[in-house]
Write a protein that binds this DNA or RNA. Structure first.
Lengths: 151, 151
DNA sequence: TTTTTATATTTGTATATACAAATGTGTGTT
DNA sequence: AACACACATTTGTATATACAAATATAAAAA
C-alpha cells in the first residue's frame, strides 16, 4: 500500500513530505513486528538493544555512557533500561573500582542464552522485509537513506 | 556518517540489517529535528499530527476512530492526545447527537492559526533532508521504501 | 588544601506507546 | 421488553521518551 493510502490522505503530497511519512510509517511497521518477536521473552526493543550492545563487548564491561552512545535513540534512559534488565537477571551492574563515577554493566549467561535463542528470529525478521528485493535495490535503498539522512 | 559509525559497530553488517538500522536511526533524526520546531509551540509531534488530520477535515468533525486510523502510529492513544489539545483550547470535543457513542472533534481557530504559523517551518523541515538529492533519487527512495515495507 | 570545573550517573516530571479491561451506547434477536 | 452482541471510547498499568535538575566523584586551578 502506498503511504497516501496508509494515512488516508485525500490530497497529492510533495515528494519530500512523502519520504518523511514513508520513513516514519515504515519504522512503525518494523517496530511492531519486532515487538511481537520479543513478546514471549518479556523484553522491549530498547532492552534488547542494550543486551545486544553488551554482547558486542565480548566480556568487557560497558559503562552507561558507552551504552548510551551506541543506542539508536540517543535520548534513551540507559539507567532505567539497565534497571529492568537487572531485575530479570540478564545483566550485572557494579561500580567501577578505577573510577567510582562509572558503572560496569555486563551481560549474564542467562542474557547471552536469550540472545542466542533470539538470533535466528531476528535474522528472519530482517530478511522478511528484504526478501522481495534484489541486491542492487537493497544497496541502492541503503545508500539513498544515508545520503538522505546526511542532508 | 554511515550507520555502522553512528552505532559504533565494529563488525560488518548484512545489508538487510543495515537497512533496518538505517530506517530506525533516520526516523530518530527526523523526529528529533521536528520536535525542536514544535518546542516553542508546546505541542508534541503526535499532537501536531492530530491537529493536521483535523484541519484536513475542512470543517467536518472527526471522531476518535477516524483520527486513529489516520495516525502514523496505529496504537496512539487518541483520547489522551485530544485531552491535551483540549486543555490548550486547540480543539473542541462534543458527543455526536446522531450516535452518542461517537465523539466529534473539531480544530479551533486558535489551532488553525498555530498550524498556519507552523506550515512554512514544516515544509522547510521536509525539504531540509531532500535538498541535496535530485528528483530521480527522491522518487527512487520513495519507491524502494514502499516496496520494502510491503515485503 | 580549598574551590572550581568537568564527568558520570541517577532521579523527577511530563508525555507517549502498547495493550488489556471497563464503560457506555446502538442494533438485532427472541 | 429483555437479552446478547457489536461498536466507540475511556481508563488502568507498565514501559519508554524527552529533558531538566540533582547527586557523586574526579581532575584542575587558585
Amino acid at each position: 500500500m502506498k503511504i497516501e493510502e496508509e494515512i488516508k490522505s485525500t490530497v497529492v503530497l510533495a515528494i519530500s513530505k512523502k519520504i518523511i511519512l514513508n520513513i516514519l510509517y515504515t519504522q512503525n511497521v518494523i517496530n511492531d513486528k519486532f515487538a511481537e518477536i520479543l513478546k514471549p521473552y518479556d523484553i522491549s526493543g530498547e532492552q534488547y538493544n542494550v543486551l545486544r550492545i553488551l554482547r558486542g563487548q565480548k566480556g568487557c564491561p560497558a559503562n552507561m555512557c558507552s551504552i548510551q552512545e551506541r543506542m539508536l535513540a540517543k535520548t534513551s534512559n540507559t539507567t532505567r533500561l539497565v534497571d529492568k534488565l537487572l531485575l530479570k537477571a540478564l545483566v550485572t551492574r557494579n561500580v567501577c573500582p578505577e573510577n567510582r563515577r562509572k558503572i560496569e554493566v555486563l551481560i549474564t549467561k542467562k542474557g547471552l542464552n536469550m540472545l542466542n535463542e533470539l538470533d535466528p528470529k531476528v535474522v528472519e525478521h530482517e530478511i522478511f522485509f528484504s526478501k522481495n528485493m534484489n541486491t542492487q535495490e537493497l544497496e541502492s535503498l541503503n545508500e539513498l537513506l544515508e545520503k538522505y539522512r546526511n542532508q
